[in-house]
Nucleic acid binder design. Structure first.
Lengths: 366, 366
DNA sequence: GCTATCGTCTGGATCGTTACAGAACCAGGC
DNA sequence: GCCTGGTTCTGTAACGATCCAGACGATAGC
């Protein structure tokens, strides 16, 4: 027996060694009983497991195993700012669900960390024990992204920000937005407006000028606005004349507040492109509060095709993106990367317009 | 120099040792540069950190540190079945948000694991590297609960199930339900009905008889039903005559489906106690679809006081429990337990009825 | 000048596991 | 009898860090 084997500490904690000494076998054998059943006789394995249960030993220590194997069984997920936001946004919820479902096949859990900017939070990210990181829809240049990217573990980005050499799972936001706005112009709408999610971290509310649109920190919004602009130009209209209203948060309430003044004016729009379904729901609510009929007086197009869009009253015309699928696709990439495969950047998923009840031709007088 | 120090592997990976050799100092000193700045001269520390940045060394390996220190910086959260459920339920969302906010002060993240029953999933739980577990509202006797409880780490349970020696953060469900139903009886309602969340894992839908109520796997529902029964008895009514309808999921849609048949009958109730706000929202929706006015024809009381209850139309009368606070309280317990403090079972939080617009005296003819 | 104290830094032990090379044993074939 | 091959088990060396007791100078106090 080696020195270690002979050591006779009373050992409050239960370890492989405890068990091995108790049974008079080597640590390696106990380890094999758990990890490689084919490496020892079934009889001995049975004996080991039985004695383990007796002593209350519940298996190898996860951290020690993690160190040795280089795996902990956790996928880090960097979500925007507060968890409640990540949980309130249906897009995000379905994404996380899809991701969790996919990675749980490998026994992986999701380690959620909000992407805060303070040093303590950044340090916590650097210290987080994960096998890979998923960065979910963060603004360009967020310091937390650099931290996780520098840890040398596989990284998969969702939507944004683009990182050199890092696969991004996303959709063709621009063409989705173009389709949405084109739907409105083809219906005959000439007075349009756009509702935008936050364009920066400063939580501004109100008209976003061209400069603000161009310098938006969220790439997704930059792309959707650009797509919308393209459709507007295509219809022979002036993009500068289309009010783009930035909302403080991607929530119906905030959108309703923002939409109220937009719809109260004299030259109110007849067609609104809301860049997410959450915003679209708010627009519909505001319209109703002002006595406007949707789609009679006002057409609203959303984006995402969240569950709420389907069950809304009226059901929302929206750009459909495969929400839960995205999570799953990210999970597939993560699993592949963890198996050492080189993963390329997948092409953006296709999006298509789903026409429902929230859009119609503009009112006669409009 | 020791044998280890002399070792001249090319070392693809960057470790403390790499850096120490490069700088001609000991591993301990490099470690101190990161963890105990007061243990070495500022000049040397600066030199170490600078060189680390140069070489691209981003700090000590989290797993090795985890093994040595006995901490990984993760709180495991065992959530019911699928993550999307945990994310869709506002109760759960606010709870998780409160928990995350609290524990992030210690740099802890939330490791989410769905509580599945298959062996692979249970194994994944046993192998999860966490400092503590939070069990969120699981049915009695769920095998996953045993697994996490047996790992020897601190455990805090939310609502249910009760575990010997484990602190539970919860509310006085029974008295909350009693208050809610009493509110209806005091308004003069005599024909009552109750909507219940799932009582078991078998996702049944329909009337739940006394036996089913008594043997419900979810303690929270057992308590709320018992509380409701008490109020009914108090009003001199027969609990057996009050239909208790079990809904397949805690969602407005499912509740609306279940409520439809309840409200369609000839002797439809004039007052419904929905055991969660989600269910209450569904009842209101179903009532409206049937042409019943709330609260004119039907009074509805919810439970939880979720954000949706406040902004619903009409705003829901409901039993208010401090949702985000609960998360924070759990976080406090977890942090305390991790600091080695003995944590007792805190008393259940107080709940109170918030009377809003969804309740009124029964219609005259009723 | 001699000890006590302080601030810095080092070496070795340790955390609990898994990977790997090889020992011990048995059976079978020539 | 000797070699080959297979199964089963052992011992040692990592994995990458942190903790702790002490070494080493320099400074201060007497």
């Amino acid at each position: 027996m080696s020195k270690a084997e002979r050591s006779d500490t009373p050992s409050g904690r239960l370890t492989l060694l405890t068990l091995a000494r108790d049974l008079g076998v080597s640590r390696a054998t106990v380890s094999n009983a758990y990890n490689r059943p084919d490496q020892l006789s079934p009889a001995l394995r049975e004996r080991i497991l039985a004695r383990a249960a007796e002593l209350g030993f519940t298996g190898p220590d996860p951290m020690a195993r993690g160190l040795r194997r280089g795996r902990v069984g956790a996928v880090g997920v960097l979500v925007d700012e507060s968890l409640s936001y990540a949980f309130s946004d249906p897009t995000s919820v379905l994404f996380l669900d899809g991701l969790a479902r996919e990675v749980q096949a490998d026994g992986l859990g999701l380690l959620l960390h909000p992407a805060r900017r303070d040093p303590a939070a950044l340090q916590a990210l650097a210290d987080a024990a994960v096998d890979a990181w998923v960065v979910q829809s963060l603004p360009d240049g967020h310091p937390a992204v650099d931290v996780v990217a520098s840890r040398g573990r596989p990284v998969v980005v969702v939507d944004q920000p683009a990182l050199p050499g890092v696969p991004v799972v996303g959709i063709d936001d621009a063409s989705g937005a173009t389709t949405a706005v084109r739907h409105l112009t083809r219906l005959g709408h000439r007075r349009l407006a756009v509702l935008a999610m936050p364009l920066g971290c400063d939580r501004r509310q109100g008209r976003a000028d061209a400069e603000r649109q161009r310098t938006a920190e969220y790439a997704v919004m930059r792309r959707r606005l650009a797509g919308a602009a393209a459709a507007v130009a295509e219809a022979g209209l002036d993009w500068a004349g289309v009010p783009v209203v930035e909302v403080t948060a991607n929530e119906p309430d905030a959108a309703a507040r923002a939409a109220r003044e937009l719809l109260a004016g004299p030259d109110r729009p007849t067609g609104v492109f809301a860049s997410t379904d959450q915003l679209a729901l708010g627009v519909v609510r505001a319209a109703r509060a002002l006595g406007l009929a949707v789609p009679g007086d006002l057409s609203v197009v959303g984006f995402d095709d969240s569950p709420a869009a389907r069950s809304a009253e009226p059901p929302l015309t929206t750009v459909a993106q495969p929400l839960r699928d995205r999570g799953q696709r990210v999970g597939v990439l993560v699993r592949a990367a963890l198996q050492g495969e080189e993963v390329g950047v997948p092409p953006p998923a296709v999006v298509g317009l789903v026409v429902r009840g929230s859009t119609a031709p503009p009112p006669r007088g409009g």
